[in-house]
Design a protein around this nucleic acid. Structure first.
Length: 575
DNA sequence: GCCGTTTTCGGCCCGACTGTTTTCAGTCG
């Protein structure tokens, strides 16, 4: 029996909690092993319960950081919904380790002490104890610790965890911009998961160089965006922002900037692998540089550090601690698609359906984003809520586009559609109407809860349609909102190859495809398009997030059809 | 508990900051 209710998140949580208990017990090395396993499980796109059904323990054992012992444990969880080893630990330590250590400044050892001394089991217990002044009486803890714990609980209750990159990046850029104007400052850069373009962001890491560190730290902690200062040293400060996130500012020596940028960009797993590689070469890597026999041999730029380690420079977006280092050793990291390299946008909604603006308004703004063409892809009639187009209105729109196209200079508007894939896999518009278009794109919007087999068949049928060029948001997920449809993505990718249908990398908050499938599609030779899914002029920034996502999936310029000029693009999609 | 261009045994990432202490433990990134 396999329980599909066991999610990867749940398994990762169990492993993380085991790591914390082992850490509290001061067991050497095992905690890190469980932590790494938990991280790697979270990065998986496919549910482990599904992988196990597909090919048993073998598939699980192949996951990096998971060996025989943990594979057995995962199988036990997937089969029974429980893990005996974990239950024993919970019996021994019946307190909410994971929740308690979520509080800033509370780690596994503090949580254990709190349980032993005051029988604290939950965050609420801890809050009560702190409010009664009991924490400060524990040896090794004082009034400041007690106060910090209370603040941490308050923050935890008011914040909502990781946020989507679309919301966080503009905030970070704005703060960085302000710091750049402080006298003496030479560099301010965004590091951490923002620089790696992760889909969701936990905190904001900023790095800077300046001739006047004191002044910069002082300005930083006094910014109007800063609600509370959590740490303030000579080269580092940590704050809580008014928008409910935390952030660091680190001040660095210009001579060590590359090593520090590398360190604070992460990921943690990537850094660990780099340091292990350094040790193998009788060197030591830290944020201060790569050191050999007490002499710094590389530190100024990231490239210098990678080169000194015998590696090709690795782009931030793929620094996840998987196979990127091995490929960099063989100099097999491809040149990823550059930012700002798109010439067109293949998904744009206008006021003909649920967009805010006219085709012309959208076109004028698109030009300012460096585009020379886009496809108008209003919804179709099944989606009545969006005022979707029927055949008649589509033809009218075509005429309007012809007229506009003559008027616009250096910009081409393509006739297109986001044609709804109906429940049975047929399309929402007649072939005759579709034949009038330059590009036909299709996607699923209704009946999202179909069984996997039916949903897969439905999408495959639409892809097989001879007039279809592009499949939009192939998995149906929206980051932090909902998971994708139940669909066999392997089959979709193979069909994309067979029927010559491009897959969309949607740059909106969908960020759909997932990077794993982007990489898989590319390896099979499937072509991609990156689009903004703009419903308003300001949404063209989504193209940038789409490129970030594509880079995370190892896409090159050649893999992405809308890096081409409009004529080349139209030629490339021809069947 | 994982892993292997040095290895199937014997290794396992590094440093700043804070709070509570008189030299360090815990947390964090």
């Amino acid at each position: 029996m396999v329980s599909t209710k066991i999610t990867n998140q749940k398994i990762a949580n169990i492993f993380s909690e085991i790591a914390l208990y082992l850490h509290a017990e001061e067991v050497p090395f095992k905690p890190q092993a469980y932590e790494i396993a938990a991280e790697n499980i979270l990065a998986l796109e496919e549910e482990l319960s599904v992988s196990y059904q597909k090919c048993g323990k073998k598939c699980i054992d192949e996951i990096p950081g998971i060996g025989k012992s943990m594979a057995d444990k995962i199988v036990e969880i997937v089969q029974t919904g429980k893990l005996k080893y974990f239950d024993q630990l919970k019996k021994k330590y019946p307190f909410e380790m994971l929740e308690l250590t979520n509080i800033q400044d509370v780690g596994p050892k503090t949580a254990l002490t709190l349980y032993k001394k005051l029988k604290i089991k939950t965050v609420d217990d801890l809050q009560n104890a702190a409010e009664k002044n009991s924490i400060s009486k524990i040896p090794g803890m004082g009034t400041k610790t007690q106060r910090n714990i209370l603040r941490g609980i308050q923050f935890l209750k008011s914040s909502s965890g990781r946020r989507i990159i679309h919301k966080v990046l503009p905030l970070a850029q704005n703060i960085a911009k302000k710091l750049q104007t402080v006298p003496g400052v030479t560099h301010v850069d965004i590091a951490g998961s923002l620089r790696r373009r992760k889909e969701s962001i936990g905190d904001i890491d900023l790095l800077a160089t300046t001739s006047n560190p004191k002044q910069l730290i002082k300005t930083f902690v006094s910014l109007p965006e800063v609600e509370k200062v959590l740490e303030q040293g000579n080269e580092k400060a940590m704050v809580r922002y008014t928008f409910g996130m935390q952030g660091d500012l680190l001040i660095l020596k210009p001579s060590e900037y590359g090593a520090a940028l590398l360190h604070f960009t992460g990921s943690r797993e990537h850094n660990i692998l780099l340091r292990e590689l350094a040790i193998n070469k009788k060197m030591k890597l830290s944020e201060h540089g790569l050191v050999h026999e007490k002499k710094i041999i590389a530190a100024k730029t990231e490239k210098q550090v990678y080169t000194a380690l015998g590696l090709q420079e690795i782009p931030p977006e793929v620094r996840i601690g998987a196979d990127e280092i091995k490929l960099a050793q063989k100099h097999k990291i491809p040149e990823l698609i550059p930012y700002n390299s798109l010439k067109g946008d293949l998904q744009v909604q206008t006021d003909w359906s649920d967009g805010d603006s006219s085709i012309e308004e959208m076109a004028l703004v698109a030009k300012t984003f460096g585009l020379s063409y886009f496809a108008v892809t209003d919804h179709t009639k099944s989606l009545t809520i969006t005022n979707g187009l029927n055949e008649k209105r589509l033809l009218e729109q075509g005429k309007a586009i012809d007229k506009l196209d003559k008027k616009l200079k250096n910009f081409r508007v393509l006739k297109s559609t986001e044609c709804d894939i109906k429940k049975d896999g047929s399309l929402d518009l007649s072939d005759r109407a579709l034949e009038t278009l330059d590009v036909v794109s299709v996607s699923v919007h209704s009946n999202r809860n179909m069984e996997k087999k039916e949903m897969t068949q439905r999408i495959l049928r639409a892809m097989k349609h001879p007039l279809v060029h592009i499949l939009f948001h192939p998995s149906g997920r929206i980051v932090n909102v909902r998971d994708g449809y139940n669909v066999d993505m392997d089959k979709i990718i193979k069909a994309a190859k067979e029927y010559k249908v491009a897959l969309e990398v949607n740059g909106s908050e969908r960020l759909d495809l997932h990077e794993k499938y982007i990489r898989q599609a590319i390896e099979l030779g499937v072509k991609l398009v990156i689009s903004s899914d703009a419903h308003a002029p300001k949404h063209f920034v989504n193209l940038d997030f789409g490129i970030g996502q594509a880079r995370r999936g190892w896409a090159t310029k050649a893999d992405v059809l809308n890096t081409k000029t409009v004529d080349e693009f139209l030629k490339a999609i021809k069947k």
